[in-house]
Simulated scan of single mutants.
Amino acid sequence: MGLAPWPEGTGRHVLAEVDSTNAEALRLAARLTGPAWVLARRQTAGRGRRGRAWADPEGNFAASLLLRPGGGPAEAARYSFVAALALHDALSQAAGPMARLSVKWPNDVLLNGGKLAGILLESAGAGPVTLVIGIGVNLLEAPPATTLEDGALPPVSLAGETGQRLSPEEFLDLLAPAFARRAADLQAHGFAPIRAAWLARAARLGEAITARTGAVTRTGRFDGIDDSGALILTTAAGREAIPAADIYFGG
Rank of each mutant, 00 (worst) to 15 (best):
R181V: 10
I119L: 13
L28C: 08
P177C: 11
V137I: 14
P144F: 04
L174G: 06
P177H: 13
K115G: 07
A237V: 06
T219V: 10
A36Y: 10
Q164F: 05
V103E: 01
Q93T: 14
I242G: 07
V129W: 00
L85R: 12
A126V: 07
P168S: 08
G151V: 05
G238P: 04
P144Q: 01
Q93Y: 02
T210G: 08
T210V: 13
A74W: 02
V156E: 03
E240C: 02
A99W: 08
F61R: 03
A23H: 13
A86N: 10
L205S: 03
D150V: 09
E122A: 12
F171Y: 13
D185Y: 00
D246C: 05
L186K: 04
E170T: 09
P5I: 14
L186P: 00
A245P: 08
T213V: 08
S228M: 06
L231A: 09
A29F: 01
R239Y: 09
L233R: 12
L140T: 01
Y248G: 11
S80M: 03
A77T: 03
R42T: 11
G125A: 05
I209M: 10
A124H: 12
L205C: 05
W105G: 00
S123K: 04
A86F: 07
W198C: 14
R239I: 12
G151H: 10
A208S: 14
A183R: 02
L67G: 01
D185I: 01
G59Y: 01
G206A: 11
L39W: 13
Q93V: 15
T130K: 04
L158P: 02
F171G: 05
A55W: 06
A202R: 08
A245C: 15
S123R: 11
I247D: 10
A16H: 07
L172M: 09
A124V: 11
L172H: 09
P243L: 07
A86R: 08
L233N: 11
K115E: 06
R204M: 07
P97M: 11
G70T: 01
G206C: 14
I135N: 05
T33M: 06
G34T: 15
A76S: 14
L175E: 06
A245G: 05
A197S: 13
T33D: 14
R182D: 00
P7G: 12
A203F: 11
A45Q: 15
A40I: 12
V129Y: 00
G206V: 05
Y79G: 00
R49F: 03
L174E: 06
G34S: 15
L26V: 06
G114V: 04
T219S: 15
L110Q: 00
G46C: 09
R182E: 12
P154T: 14
A16C: 00
L32F: 07
K115W: 11
G48R: 14
L153V: 11
A45D: 14
G224P: 03
G238L: 15
A90P: 01
W105R: 02
G151Q: 13
